[in-house]
Structure formats: structure tokens, C-alpha cells
Design a protein around this nucleic acid. Structure first.
Lengths: 200, 200
DNA sequence: TGACAAACCACACAAATGTGTGGTATATCT
DNA sequence: AGATATACCACACATTTGTGTGGTTTGTCA
């Protein structure tokens, strides 16, 4: 796990407010931070920012409004929790095992240009844990490796999500469901599955 | 499908620049837009913003720096493709069936405060399409409904992901795997599964 | 005791940023 | 021909926002 720089409770509050605002798409101004946290002087806020910058959690650009950026270390993370002490009504900080970087988890630094989504229909990939209604995020590629799950274009102009198999140099497609036979007909790989998302 | 408001090429360029900057986390100022697009007057940019606002693509707050927001209509969307015409080497626009809003899909407007993640261990939910290594996004809640998949705190202080069942008013937990017996011991619901994400 | 950091405030000033008025030119539609 | 929309510019001004200086108080550590 990562070591966290020590933050005073107040510094943590400031950081969290920045996180919240960054997540909401508009980083705060110095005065907005002050207002939220109850500081009457902009100098106070600047002291906090200075501290956060020194601790490597925040970056800033000079003379630019709202130009507060979270560094890697501080960027928005969703806590991953493990075991929790009994008796505590809420999830306490101490029990957090680590963090997933939200940006990373959800999209990461993919060029959006070569990514598209397929909404999965049917149960042909059910044994691979891909269910009807899931959204499959595909990265465009003209080829893939053995065992990769790919989006492929079939002769009937349909796109299907299947596992790519290489049998003695010859590629074919396989469903992840015994009820569906393998596909040996002509197809073209249009992309590779990189992420599956399911909403409940 | 959605109808797109007609945009002039220049308006489109302005919108795209805003999109880019919003994606990079800091919406542009009016002058930054002008600089990028080669406009020498802030008035010009304001004209464009006015047009985009009128077409429902952009929202603004008065007297706030960088307070440009993309509306639902304009916010980043990943194309969902369906069938594709054969012979075309690339995925063409026409074949796009619709869009998933990236923000919405990946996180949406959840209060970050009450969301956490569990990395799934083991195969106890495999029949629900939740595999070892998947990330389960949980929204904190003290209760849930019958058949919801929940994160529950057991007596041994472990958190587990299981399906909540209500049998004659009495709740218990069930795995989605015949190899795991239902859990009738004491537990506390700490949250409800809202999203599953799997990276390949 | 002295040094230092955390945690504040007031206030002046500079720079960035948004607003508003009033233009020009070109093309299209009626 | 007149109305309307697009596509610009200049420039003054108001407001917001960032910067900088110089404080006070409280507690901790050596």
C-alpha cells in the first residue's frame, strides 16, 4: 500500500473539498475554499494550499483562476475496504485497505477516439461473467491474441463479442456458453474487450 | 436516438475545445477559448457561447471564472455500435446506435462520500457474473431490498458480497454459487451493489 | 526559554476574467 | 430591399480571483 503523508484534520478537510469540487468538474477558487471551510482570510487558504503542495498532494499554476490540480497521490480514489471493526456504525478511515483511482478504474488515459461500447445482448458469454445488458468497452484493434475476448464483425454484418481462439494457426470464435457452437466462418476483429461494466 | 442540434463548423470547434478542456479537468476562460480559436475579441467568444447555450449544449454561471459546463446533450459520450456495413474499414458514424454518457456510465452524479469499492475475492458470486478480481462499487446503505446484492458485515468482521434474501420476513444472505451454503448468521448490510467493473 | 509549525486574520494590490456597448462585413431567406 | 444569422473586432469597465506583506495565538519539541 502507499504511504500517506501526514495531514492535519483541517488540511484533510481542505483537500477533500478540493477533491469534491474537482470531481464536480470545477476546481474551487481560493475564496470558495475559504468560504466553505469558514476562513475569513484568503491568506489562510493559501497557507493550506502551500502545505498541501509541499506534501505533494496538489499542484498549482500561478495567476490562473481555479488552477488547482490533484497530483497522482491525491487524485480521486475510491476506498477499497476490507474487514471492518465491529461495533463501529460507519466505515472508518483506518479500515480502508487501499484506493482505486477512479479515473484509472473507469476510463484511464485512453484516447477516446479508439474506444467504443457494445451493449451485450444475450447469454453467449455468460460463462465468462458477461451478462445480458452489460456494457462492453472495446478498444479498436485489427487483431488480438489467442484467448482474448474480441468484438468481431461477421459476414452478416453483425458485431459479436466472443473469445478468439487460435487452433493451429487458424483463428475462430468461441462463445462462453456450451449452448453456442464455435464460429468458424469468416470474421474480422474490430477490437479487443478491455472493460466490462454492469449497472444494477 | 437523439437529434443533434445543427452546429456550424466553427461552433463545433468551440464546443470541442471546451470538451477537451473539461475533460482535462479545467474548463477554459473566455480568453483562452479565443486564443485557441484565433479570436482577437472576447466578444466573439461570447457570441459563440451564447449560441451554444441557446442550442442547449452548454450552461454557464455568471461572473464566475471558467464556469462553463457541458449539458447532458454535449457531455462526453462513447458510441454504442450495432451492426456495421461490410466493406467499410472503419466504424462509420452512421452505424452508431446511440451513446452512453461516459460520466454517467462510469460514475454518474453519486456523492462520492457514500461510495466505496470492494475487490471481489473468490467465486462465490460467479453465477451472478461477478468474478474473482472484479471491482464492486457499493453505495453505503443500512438496508436493502429482497434480491439486492449487498455488501454485508459478518460477525467475524469480514465484509462479503452476497445476495440478500427475505424469507418470511427474515433476511439471510445467499451466494450465487451452489458450492456455498446460505448464510443465516448475524450480519449487517453496509451497502448495496450498484456497479461491477472488470478490467481485462 | 527559544524555535517552529499550525492555524488563523486584515488588507492592499495586481492580474485575470467576465460583461457590455457598439460597431463591420458577408451571406441567406422572404 | 429588409430581416436575420454568422462571424468577427475594439475597448472600457466591473468583478473575481490570485498575490503579498505583516500580523496574532496556541501548542509542541529541544
Amino acid at each position: 500500500m502507499e504511504e500517506k503523508p501526514y495531514l492535519t484534520p483541517k488540511q484533510e478537510k481542505v483537500l477533500n473539498f478540493i477533491r469534491k469540487r474537482v470531481g464536480e468538474r470545477l476546481p474551487p477558487t481560493i475564496r470558495e475554499i475559504g468560504e466553505e471551510l469558514g476562513f475569513k482570510s484568503t491568506g489562510t487558504v493559501r497557507d493550506y494550499l502551500k502545505a498541501l503542495i509541499q506534501k505533494g498532494l496538489v499542484r498549482r499554476m500561478n495567476n490562473k483562476s481555479r488552477a488547482i490540480e490533484l497530483t497522482e497521490r491525491a487524485s480521486f480514489k475510491i476506498p477499497i475496504i476490507g474487514t471492518i471493526m465491529a461495533g463501529k456504525p460507519n466505515l472508518a478511515y483506518e479500515e480502508i485497505q487501499g484506493y482505486v483511482d477512479a479515473d484509472d478504474l473507469f476510463l484511464g488515459r485512453l484516447g477516446f477516439d479508439d474506444v467504443f461500447a457494445l451493449r451485450v445482448k444475450g447469454d453467449s458469454m455468460i460463462d465468462a461473467g458477461i451478462l445480458d445488458g452489460d456494457v462492453a468497452i472495446i478498444k479498436k484493434r485489427p487483431n488480438a491474441d489467442n484467448n482474448d475476448i474480441v468484438a468481431a464483425l461477421l459476414d452478416n454484418n453483425e458485431v459479436t463479442l466472443k473469445r478468439l481462439r487460435n487452433r493451429a494457426g487458424k483463428f475462430h470464435l468461441e462463445a462462453a456458453n456450451a449452448n453456442y457452437p464455435p464460429i468458424f466462418e469468416e470474421f474480422k476483429v474490430i477490437g479487443k474487450l478491455i472493460t466490462v461494466i454492469r449497472k444494477y
